[in-house]
């Protein structure tokens, strides 16, 4: 059973948490302008990596906060945890984030365009 360090409550058994899937999937602001294929990248395509992965968890039985975790899916080693409104700060986390295919997806570039406006 995983031992997950909630950024607020500290280490707790994974039974206290719910899993929230891949982290840092930006929600397209103006999704209507995306094609079905582009939208499906946002909605359905998950990275599902062997090795490092950035994922979301919520401390359901505790403080009910959502946060992100950098975990190795092979060894289950947790490299870092951080609040959901932040980006990873470990070197491995930064690299994973930067190199993720999603950074180049249509859905995400749309979000970026909106933010730039």
């Amino acid at each position: 059973m995983l031992y997950i360090k909630c950024p607020w409550c500290g280490y707790r058994d994974d039974a206290e948490f719910h899993y929230g899937g891949e982290a840092h999937i930006k929600r397209p602001f103006d999704a209507d302008s995306l094609s079905d294929e582009e939208f499906s990248e946002y909605l359905f395509q998950k990275s599902n990596t062997k090795g490092l992965t950035l994922e979301r968890w919520v401390h359901t039985s505790g403080c009910r906060r959502w946060f992100n975790v950098l975990r190795n899916t092979v060894t289950n080693e947790i490299i870092e945890v951080y609040p959901s409104n932040q980006l990873p700060s470990s070197q491995a986390g930064k690299e994973y984030y930067k190199n993720n295919w999603r950074r180049k997806s249509a859905a995400e570039s749309l979000t970026t365009r909106q933010v730039e406006k």
Binding site: R56, V58, T60, R64, W66, S84, N85
Partner: peptide, 13 residues
């Protein structure tokens, strides 16, 4: 409740 918190915390804080 968890769903509402999720959207509030992660999408529209």
């Amino acid at each position: 409740l968890e769903w509402l918190e999720e959207w509030h915390q992660t999408e529209w804080p």
